[in-house]
Design a protein around this nucleic acid. Sequence first.
DNA 1: TTTATTTACGTAAACGTTTACGGTGTTTTG
DNA 2: CAAAACACCGTAAACGTTTACGTAAATAAA
Lengths: 340, 340
Amino acid sequence: MKPVNLKKLAEELNLSIATVSRALNDRYDIAQATKDRVRELANKLNYEPNPYASSLRRHKSRTIAVVIPEVANHFFSLAINGIEEIARGNNYHVLIYLTHEEYQREASIVRLLAGGRVDGVLLSVASRSHDLNHLDLLRERGIPMVFFDRVHADMDTAKVTTDDYESGYKATRHLLDAGCRTVAHLTLAGSLTISRRRMHGYIDALRDFGLPYDETLVVPAQLSKPEDIQAIEALLTHRPAIDGIFACVESLAMCSYEACRNLGRAIPADVKVIGFSNLEMAALLDPPLTTITQPAYNIGREAARILFQAVNKNRPILPTHSLELKSELIVRASTAASPR
Amino acid sequence: MKPVNLKKLAEELNLSIATVSRALNDRYDIAQATKDRVRELANKLNYEPNPYASSLRRHKSRTIAVVIPEVANHFFSLAINGIEEIARGNNYHVLIYLTHEEYQREASIVRLLAGGRVDGVLLSVASRSHDLNHLDLLRERGIPMVFFDRVHADMDTAKVTTDDYESGYKATRHLLDAGCRTVAHLTLAGSLTISRRRMHGYIDALRDFGLPYDETLVVPAQLSKPEDIQAIEALLTHRPAIDGIFACVESLAMCSYEACRNLGRAIPADVKVIGFSNLEMAALLDPPLTTITQPAYNIGREAARILFQAVNKNRPILPTHSLELKSELIVRASTAASPR
DNA sequence: TTTATTTACGTAAACGTTTACGGTGTTTTG
DNA sequence: CAAAACACCGTAAACGTTTACGTAAATAAA
């Protein structure tokens, strides 16, 4: 109700506002006795500095923004966890924004952030973001930004990613080694680097195995669960030879399970499934799902760490600060080799 | 780099800062022609008002805080989704804080928020929060707060919960009807209302069925996965008669699955399992998990809606604004009746 | 002692907005 | 035609901090 601010403290202590401020900030030119007096009263009255006044004056918001497509997704949840951890360690606050995979939403969020609300931005781009013009604003305003996972290739800032090409290669190779000869690839619509790299791994693995690349086996997701299930069912029905599915994201692996169940296809006997996923209970699925698991928590931590290095030292973020972490192939029953 | 602010716009347009500000805020006493000129330049220069100056002056932060135990959890992810949706509709920003179920962390977060950083708080209390003294600060400062899901009973503000007693009753009854006679209850440590109410449902269901309440069948979680699995294994080994498990939270249902697998107990033949959960792929588990599913997204939405009603109209939040939504019992194979 | 240095604090401006108040010039009203 | 009303804009204070600068007293150096 009645705010307790520096003025109030100063009056109560017969000091000037400036002295109180400096005492609380532990400046060298304030007597120890005064500091003690000030701190005691501040504690007693539960004084908390007004963050807005402070930010206005210092041109520092002690806040970062995390912009992600969605939060109901294990990868991003874990990433947020890592980000929050680092932010907290730096005494920073975390604003969260969801784009729902939409370009417009991403653009309007970025526009807001360009107003100086945050000292830095962690961004994982929406799949429907076709260009990156909307991000220029941040660069113009000098707001540091780090991409994580979903990155734009041609952006001169740091990116924290995983070994997507290798993962795509390994995943496909794993299916082929397990006996698959017609491998479908479910990917995100749009042209995200992440999808492209995973797909290149897929294509190269096929080629190295002596199989042709059939682009009709690659289907982009609609990102609505029922639509995706239907699309997969259509694919499986239309191309009955398909004996392997490589899903680029968690949700598409789940949709594949449902589609197979609906069509009566047995996993892994008829169709083997592998998918990118951070689902802890992949092991408890029926059948347990073979996954490529990204170090989501660490991705969040590292991205935040890079951002804070720039924010704290007032230096720009360079592409050379980029990091590539390794994903892990966890083999489970959904890709068990069929008896021949 | 060079900030574009009202001063800059004013100079460029040969107007006073005040006029520019009023033009942008669409005040009545500014000529339409002037408004147009101002807006055009503002757009051209990508002017964004400095939120900190604005907040300082208006005593409004256009920001709310969401304080939750963790984010890597489907319930909270969905709730955040709902909250963000409403916040966005109100042109508000969302700060997120994780307590990791710890009292100290919750307290220090609340202390920060009391400084006026936010206009309102949405809180789901940590399981290790034994009291609510730390929340007094917010009340003193007049910062509205709405509890959701994890609430403190004796707090005079609005709470958005689900029908936990009924759900606990229904879940237990369902196990009994399926043939269970020794039902264990896995619950959260601490004395959260949510746990107590669910447990009361459990106890009453047992009593109505003519079974005694055996408190050694109730085990509190440690909240670390390996520990919890071990605890469940110990319980099942020590009490071999247990033929049903009612898990108070999602993670404990998953731990039960792992424990049963480790011990070679078949679900549902040997042990039937039911758990609170918002996991979409509960249906894809082995076996598909019977769940009590909370309307997490709507809980988030409603909690946010109540908060904004207070924030926007500058009115206090009353306990009478509380809401109780209904959870849903979704029967799947993990509780299939055993053939007798 | 005088001068320089240090210690400890106050004054006032600044950050970028918003807004109460006032002041023009123009139009309307009696 | 004077008075009132109105339309439009400027001045300046305020929000709560931080900080460059100044200053008085105390201490050290000369």
